[in-house]
Computed example of a mutant assay.
Amino acid sequence: MLYTRDKTRRIKLGEVELGKGAPVAVQSMTCTDTRDVKATLNQIKELNQAGCEIVRLAVPDQEAALAFRPITDQSPLPVVADIHFDARLAVAAVENGAKGLRINPGNIGSTKAVDRVVDAAKAHHTPIRVGANSGSLPKELLKKHGGPTTEAIVEAALSHVRLLEERGFYDIKVSLKSSSVLNTIAACRALAEISDCPQHIGVTEAGGITSGTVKSAMGIGALLMEGIGDTFRVSLTADPVREVEVAWHILRAAGLRKRGVEIVSCPTCGRTEIDLMGLLAKVKKELAVITAPLTVAVMGCVVNGPGEASHADVGLAGGRGQGIIFAKGKVIKKVPESDLVEAFMDQVLKAQDEYLNNRKTRNQNEA
């Protein structure tokens, strides 16, 4: 079944719009001590440069909640407060500039505590993300459904949503997560059939770079291709900047959004007469400054490279002691191996300038 994002309700988190057909937004979370304002802002700025659009911060205590004021005043991204159990921290974070809350209303405290959070969120126009994690479901639901099933996850989340909607609060997004790819997909599909709340999707506790990337690509990618998901986080046991990099690769592969360079590179084989892996590593480092959505190719065979990567905006192919630079399958020039990366980057920068000039012209014509 194919779902459509334009059927979810629209909410606004800072300047980022979510739901009702808005572009799928990339989110991550800092791993700094929120109370360390300088370190947290430095990491937020790194995430922003990588393409992150929403950032979440842990709020373990009142000091962290109060740190939101200097952080949100200087942050280039909307900041979400991650709250567990304590309504006072949620209220303090909102009053100090948090653009969003991540809570579970069912465990935030008494009825009065939920009232306080909702009143603060209404007063400051702060959306609330509620959710359910298969690893922390209420005991009564686990008993009712025989474990952390799809039905148990969905019921847990919707019970939290009802607590907010009964108080006239509807700026809600929902997340249903599991460390299991299949359980995550099933739960998000089930919610999409019965709710118009925007969904924040992701496979939780996905693991390190390799396993986490694979599980996230499978789970998040499958949901995005079905039209489910308005914002997402790639959960990795790694530098959060890597989460953002993987997220944009997923968006590009799903045909939804593009940012920066997509690298096409061939596997090594017996015809390779150049250090292709070393060459690729150098190229990736140089390409970090490119923001235009270009496709570039790093090929190990001069004979077949340009043809196999004829769709690339710019490419290089290495041979014994030399290589070629090509664009759209046409050879531009032959250069010594020692000059290959520099000549390649010169052509990439030209391609980026051309892209930016064309975009500027299109925008002027549409104005």
Rank of each mutant, 00 (worst) to 15 (best):
L2A: 15
Y3T: 06
R5P: 01
R10T: 03
I11Y: 12
G14H: 08
E15I: 13
V16I: 15
V16M: 13
L18Q: 10
P23S: 11
V24L: 01
A25R: 15
D33I: 01
V37P: 01
L41I: 06
K45G: 06
K45T: 12
Q49Y: 13
A58D: 10
V59L: 00
P60C: 04
D61Q: 04
E63W: 00
A65P: 02
A67G: 12
F68Q: 06
F68E: 04
Q74S: 04
S75P: 12
I83H: 10
A87T: 10
V91S: 01
V91C: 13
E95W: 14
A98D: 11
K99G: 12
K99A: 15
L101D: 11
L101Y: 04
L101G: 13
S110R: 10
T111D: 15
V114C: 12
V117M: 09
D119N: 13
R129Q: 03
L137N: 07
L137K: 02
L142V: 13
K143F: 10
K144G: 11
T149D: 15
T150Q: 12
A152P: 00
A152G: 05
I153Y: 03
V154I: 07
L164C: 14
D171L: 02
D171M: 14
K173W: 02
K177N: 13
S178N: 08
S179T: 01
N183S: 15
C188F: 10
H200L: 10
A206P: 07
K215Q: 07
S216N: 07
G219T: 02
A222H: 12
M225E: 15
T237K: 14
T237I: 12
R242E: 05
A247F: 08
W248H: 02
H249Q: 14
R252C: 02
R252H: 14
A254N: 07
G255L: 08
G255F: 04
L256N: 07
L256S: 04
R259D: 01
R259H: 10
I263C: 04
P267T: 04
T268C: 11
G270E: 11
R271F: 09
T272S: 11
M277G: 14
G278T: 00
L280W: 05
L280C: 09
E286T: 03
A292I: 03
P293S: 00
M299V: 02
G300P: 01
V303Y: 09
N304W: 02
N304A: 14
G315L: 08
G315K: 03
R320S: 13
Q322N: 09
I324K: 07
K328A: 10
G329A: 00
I332A: 05
K333D: 11
A343M: 09
D346W: 08
D346Y: 00
Q347F: 05
V348L: 03
L349E: 07
L349D: 09
A351F: 03
A351I: 03
L356Q: 10
L356G: 07
K360N: 04
A367H: 14
A367C: 03
